[in-house]
C-alpha cells in the first residue's frame, strides 16, 4: 500500500503539477499573451500603467475615483482583501460616515446623495469598475477640475459603460482606468 501510494504520488505530481501547468502556460503564452500576462495597460513609451482588470487609487479631482478599498493601504494589488466588517460593526459605520463627508466636500455640485457603491468597500479591494450611476455622480467634479462641460464628461462615461454580460449576467459597469485614460486623451490640457 505504501509503495503504491508513493509511486502514485510521484506519477500524479508529474501529470498534475508539471505536464498540466506547462501545457496550459505554453498555449496561453503563445495564443493569449495579453490576458495571460495580466491584461496590462501600457503608456506610449511601453511603461506599465496598470492592469485593465485591477482597480487603482485615484485622488486628483480630475480623475474618476473607484470604491473604497480594504486591500492593504488601499488598492494594494499584492494584498487583496475586503473589509470583512459586518453590518453591526461600529468600525464600518465610522468608515462610511468619514467617506461620505469627504465625498460630499469634494463633490459640491454632485446630484443627490452619495451612491452606495462609493461608500462600500469591494470584496477584493481591487474592484476596477463602478456602476454607471456612481461614475456619473462624479462628473461635475471632473468637469470643473478639467474645465470642460459636464456633458462631455458624461459622454465619455456613457461611451465606456458596458451592459450585463449576454444581456442578463452581472451588472452594468464602467471601467475606472479606461475612463481616466480617455479623459487624459481627450482633455489633456486640463487636469
Amino acid at each position: 500500500m505504501l509503495s503504491a501510494s508513493l509511486r502514485a504520488t510521484a506519477l500524479l505530481l508529474v501529470l498534475c503539477c508539471l505536464v498540466y501547468p506547462a501545457l496550459v502556460t505554453g498555449i496561453a503564452q503563445v495564443a493569449l499573451p495579453e490576458t495571460a500576462n495580466g491584461s496590462l495597460v501600457r503608456a506610449e513609451d511601453g511603461a506599465v500603467i496598470g492592469s485593465s482588470l485591477i482597480g487603482q487609487a485615484f485622488r486628483s479631482p480630475g480623475y474618476l475615483q473607484g470604491r473604497p478599498s480594504a486591500a492593504g493601504a488601499g488598492y494594494d494589488a499584492a494584498a487583496s482583501s475586503g473589509s470583512n466588517l459586518g453590518m453591526t460593526s461600529q468600525k464600518l459605520a465610522d468608515r462610511r460616515a468619514a467617506t461620505e463627508a469627504a465625498l460630499l466636500a469634494q463633490n459640491p455640485a454632485a446630484p443627490g446623495p452619495v451612491p452606495e457603491l462609493l461608500l462600500t468597500a469591494s470584496g477584493s479591494g481591487l474592484d476596477p469598475e463602478l456602476p454607471p450611476a456612481a461614475a456619473l455622480w462624479q462628473a461635475p467634479r471632473i468637469a470643473a477640475a478639467r474645465g470642460v462641460d459636464v456633458a462631455r464628461i458624461r459622454a465619455v462615461i456613457d461611451e465606456l459603460t458596458v451592459g450585463r454580460d449576454l444581456g442578463f449576467l452581472g451588472e452594468p459597469r464602467v471601467n475606472v482606468l479606461a475612463v481616466n485614460l480617455a479623459l487624459d486623451r481627450r482633455f489633456p490640457e486640463a487636469r
Binding site: 496561453a28 493569449l32 490576458t35 495571460a36 500576462n37 500603467i49 482588470l53 487609487a57 494594494d76
Partner: peptide
Amino acid sequence: ALVLVTGGTPQTWSAYVHARTLEGADQLLA
C-alpha cells in the same frame, strides 16, 4: 484553464509586475 485565460485570468511564471499609475503612484500587480 484556457477558457479562463481568454476571460482575463493570468497564467505566467514571471514575477509580479511593477506599474506606475497615471498619478505617478506605484502599484505592484500580483
